[in-house]
Design a protein around this nucleic acid. Structure first.
Ligand code: MN
Ligand code: MN
Ligand code: ZN
Ligand code: ZN
Lengths: 132, 132
DNA sequence: CTTTCACCTTGACATTGTCTAAAATACTAA
DNA sequence: TTAGTATTTTAGACAATGTCAAGGTGAAAG
């Protein structure tokens, strides 16, 4: 992955130490973290970063399309470094959220929904991940 | 629909005025209300009902399977009088949430997800409802 | 050096949701 | 009826999520 500074520059966001700390964690994170998760981890590299700055940076990244945001978990929005279209599987035992590649599932019948103009959609699955 | 008292009795929940006010609103509501929506409306019929009782009653109804709960909107869980399996369409302009009958959509390919045991799933769509 | 400007921090605030202690209510049995 | 017990309700405390405004810091420009 490109380094945080280049990514920020490319989107016309000034690369400050606080923003770099947020970006370095959240854009390579595979765990669908909450804002508070990001805050905790960003603090390790930048101990003075504030909650407000974390929220501001996350919202900025989402606006710029560098970061996804999902409202599939109770209590807090989660952020998603994977900005390609994909589905989600939620392990109800552990709370872990897994990405399901877009082409693994096909949703048929959307054309029949005459009253609705669909901008985007995804399949949300709940269950348990099989231990291998 | 059966009356609130019978419904509560049938589930071994004592029908108190507070619970009746909650049930009468939430079980015939088609708008996917939040707990606070239910609180506001229940107060009209039972002006003394407290927030705690509304939450307790909603959680009881969900436990008993009389009410659905969905985490598809930011900020608050929503409740769903429709306990049949179905999908959801969210109008991003208005925030309104529409039920999509289960058999209108078909999700193919779940069998390929060997690592996951799926308990339930649904399709979540975002877009705009066409004005007729 | 002074002004300006973007950024950051702090803390206040609103909202959601849970929990507890005490009051109110309803059932039960003498 | 009356006393006692169990259930329910209420008010408020509390924690967590998220937004916002006020003021501080620091660099760049004049
Ligand atoms: Mn974490
Ligand atoms: Mn309402
Ligand atoms: Zn994802
Ligand atoms: Zn529904």
């Amino acid at each position: 992955m490109k380094d945080a500074i280049s990514i920020l520059r490319q989107c016309d966001i000034q690369p400050t130490p606080q923003r770099i700390a947020v970006v370095e964690y959240v854009l390579k994170c595979k765990t669908h973290p909450s804002a508070d998760d990001v805050f905790t981890h960003a603090r390790k590299n930048c101990p003075t970063v504030s909650r407000a700055t974390v929220y501001n940076t996350l919202n900025l990244l989402v606006e710029k399309g560098l970061l996804g945001m999902q409202t599939i978990r109770e209590g807090a929005v989660i952020f998603d470094a994977n900005v390609e279209k994909h589905h989600h599987f939620i392990d109800d035992d552990t709370g872990d959220i897994y990405d399901i590649p877009w082409d693994q599932l096909e949703v048929k019948g959307k054309g029949k929904l005459k009253d609705f103009e669909i901008f985007e959609f995804q399949v949300i699955m709940h269950g348990r991940r099989k231990k291998k």
